[in-house]
Design a protein around this nucleic acid. Structure first.
Length: 183
DNA sequence: CAATAGATCATCT
DNA sequence: GATGATCTATTGC
């Protein structure tokens, strides 16, 4: 029985819906993800470019890949792929379970719960995630992901957001009808 | 309400 | 020197 983080990346992305992201006192349910495969996926940072930064794509499942986007936003990914391959899952949105005040304080604004972590960069802001957590082991510790305890609702799929390549791949997944899914 | 500009930097060419 | 897996504020209808 392979762990959640050893599934093919698109399946791992779906399996992470309904999981809980925890960082200390703050926790939330993951409601939206995207898959980025290292092979055969031109939109992926690691496609044909195995460099120092992307090395973790082929690393142990469950490790964090955190990178800076557009010079000011952090994005949080989890390494997930069958052994011998490479790929990560981008965490795009979460619904707060605890620590809502902390999230609002970090964001510096009084967002409603379903919007405070609705978007890749909002999520990292609300959860206090930045580059120093790159490479962290999300399977254990203060900063971790707990597998879903129940099946989430119906899962929808669509094209990924904000990319210019491989637009035809339906690698974005979300819990259908969930208010915290990004716009 | 929809469209767009600007912020800002690690990483790679 | 170019390039983004984004967000927000502001402008223009």
């Amino acid at each position: 029985m392979p762990s959640l983080f050893e599934l093919p990346t698109p399946r791992a992305a779906r399996a992470l819906l309904g999981a809980t992201l925890v960082h200390g006192r703050v926790a939330g349910t993951i409601v939206e993800t995207e898959a980025y495969a290292a092979e055969d996926d031109p939109a992926c940072h690691a496609c044909n470019r195995r460099t120092a930064r992307t090395e973790v794509f082929w690393g142990e499942g469950g490790l964090a890949y955190v990178y800076l986007c557009y010079g000011l936003h952090w994005c949080l990914n989890v390494v997930a792929h069958p052994k011998g391959r490479g790929g990560v899952v981008l965490l795009r949105a979460a619904m707060p379970v605890s620590g809502l005040d902390e999230m609002r304080r970090r964001r510096g604004r009084d967002d409603p719960p379903e919007r405070v972590a609705s978007g890749p960069a909002r999520l990292t802001q609300a959860f206090g995630v930045s580059g120093v957590l790159n490479g962290a082991d999300l399977r254990r510790g203060e900063f971790r992901i707990e597998p879903p305890v129940r099946r989430p609702g119906r899962i929808a799929a669509g094209p990924r957001i904000g990319i210019t390549k491989a637009v035809g791949l339906l690698y974005r997944y979300w819990i259908e009808g969930h208010p915290a899914v990004s716009k």
